[in-house]
Structure formats: structure tokens, C-alpha cells
Amino acid sequence: MQKSIQFKNKNWEVAAYLNLPENFDENLKQRAIICVHPGSSVKEQTAGEYAKKLAQEGFITLAFDASFQGESGGEPRFLEDPATRVEDIKCAVDHLTTLKFIDNEKIGVLGICAGGGYAANAALTERRIKAVATVSTSNFCRAYKESLDPIQILEAVGKQRTAEANGAEPIIVNWTPNSVEEAKAQGMDELDLLECIDYYRTPRGNHPRSSNQLLFTSFGNNVNFDAFHLADQLLTQPLLVIVGDKVGAFGSYRDGFELYNKAASKSKNIHVVKDASHYDLYDHPKATSEAMSALILFFKENL
């Protein structure tokens, strides 16, 4: 059973789905998992699908739209702000603790792609999170720093902020080209990018609220954020990292191993899904089935 709910982050509402298992009994204290979507995504896509499958295995799950995006509130629209993304997760924990059927000592988090980086980062300082799992995790801002000139971007962001302060309209850019053909015409033919477009911009995974729109000034918040900073000291919860072995330019294979190696967790594991790419782990049955088996075992053992 899926319920549409809202919870607060500061003074706006965050839109979410609460998924209840088939045998749900509100009189029993139960385990819960917060599912965090990738950048450019919404709760109805890959994180929401993992959330539904985990609910079928007996967990209560919560998948939400990031602040400023999807059905969630907050201004300006289409902002990708790492600090707020992390705070969204903490506010989701807040909400779960208000539900009488949640065991507050058995709350975990699962993040996909950039959501994996945000999930790990939230767990550094959110001790109410008792177990952390990531799928195709991306230290999102590291990828931006490597693919763009950060000083040039920051100069451009500063000029745009000055323009907006003086009345100019915000600039909205695309997360990705709108089609594979458009990408190739621009000389972009890397595996992860083409598969990203195939997932988000075709009927395979497209959702109307996943609009491919990003506020340009978001880049000013992103280039200096390191999702794994202090993981070697503060990330002590049990950790499961799931990656595919088909390595693409977005770097989730490398980021997954970096998180695994860096984490201070005494109980940690990295699971490599063979012949799977970053985006195979979003929705391809064989890859997601293997990932789900690992996730179910991990959360049952650690929540």
C-alpha cells in the first residue's frame, strides 16, 4: 500500500510516498528505509521502484522528491543544493519518528547515484540512521569538478547572481541533452551519458516531473561539496555499496570503492554486479534483482 504524504523542511513541504508492506500492522514497531533519488530524478523513478520492492519484503519505505524539485516545495525551483538535499534526509528521519509504528532504532537509508552520496553524507552526522546502502553511488560534485573548469564556472555563477540581484531572469539549463541524437551531434557519446538519456528522456524511465531542468546557479553550491568528507571518521554505521562492473565516465564504480575503502564502518561490504552499468542498476531486471537480494539481506541483518 502506498500513501502520499508530506513532511517539513524548514517552511516548505517535501512530497513523499510512504510504502507499507502487505502484512502491515500499525500496532507493531517496524523497520523503515528512506530511499533517496538521483540528481534530476523524482520519487516515481528508480528510488521509488526500489522503495516499492523493499516494501514487498516487509520494510516500511519512504521515497521523496528533493526540495525545490518534483512535487516538493521550496524556492527557487530546480535548485540542486547538496546541503538541502542532506537536510531533506534528516527531515525524513524526523517524520518517521513521529509515526507510532516505526522503531526509531531501526531506520536505514538507501541512495541511488547522487542520492547515494547524499545518503552517505547525511549518515555522517545523523546518528538516527542505523544502516546505509548505496546503488551506483556518485560523489556527484566530484564529477562536476572533473568535467568542468570550476573557477570558470564559479566566475559565471557570480556574474549570473549579480544579474539576478539586479532583476535578470534565472538561467535554467539541461542536466543532459534531450536525446541521444542531440548528444552525439555535440560529440558526446560516452556510455553513462547515453544510458542516462535513454533512462530519463525516453518511455523507459521518463516521468513528466523529471523535467531535465537545472538552475544554473546551482553550480555554485556543487563544485566544493565532497559527499565523503570525514567518512573515515564519522561513517561508522553498517554500510553496503553496490556497483556495476561496466565502468563509465560518471564514476560510480570508482566512487563506490572510494566510499567503501574510506568509511570507518566496522561492518561494510561492496557488492559488484557483473555485466551491469550504472543505469542497468536503475531498472534492468537482472541487475536490480541481484542488487535487491543484497539489499534485503543487508537491511534484515542490520535493522
Rank of each mutant, 00 (worst) to 15 (best):
N23L: 07
K29S: 11
G39K: 02
A143V: 10
Q30L: 14
F24S: 06
Q30P: 08
S41L: 05
V135S: 01
I33F: 06
T61M: 03
K29C: 07
I89S: 00
F140Q: 02
K100C: 05
E49N: 12
A51Y: 09
A123N: 07
G48R: 03
I112E: 07
G74Q: 09
D25S: 12
P82L: 15
G115T: 02
G111A: 09
V36K: 01
Q45D: 00
R31E: 05
A119E: 00
L54G: 05
G111Q: 01
G73R: 14
Q56W: 08
K130P: 08
C141T: 15
V36I: 07
H37W: 02
A120I: 01
I102S: 07
K100P: 10
Y118Q: 08
L110F: 09
N139A: 06
A51V: 15
T84F: 07
N27V: 09
S67D: 04
H95I: 00
T46Q: 04
V109K: 03
E44S: 01
D88G: 00
L54K: 15
I33A: 06
A143I: 10
A131C: 09
L96C: 14
S72R: 06
H95G: 15
I34H: 09
Y144C: 13
D65Q: 10
N121C: 03
A83Q: 01
T137G: 01
E26W: 02
T61G: 13
E22T: 15
A122C: 09
E126K: 05
E57M: 13
D103T: 01
D88N: 07
S138R: 10
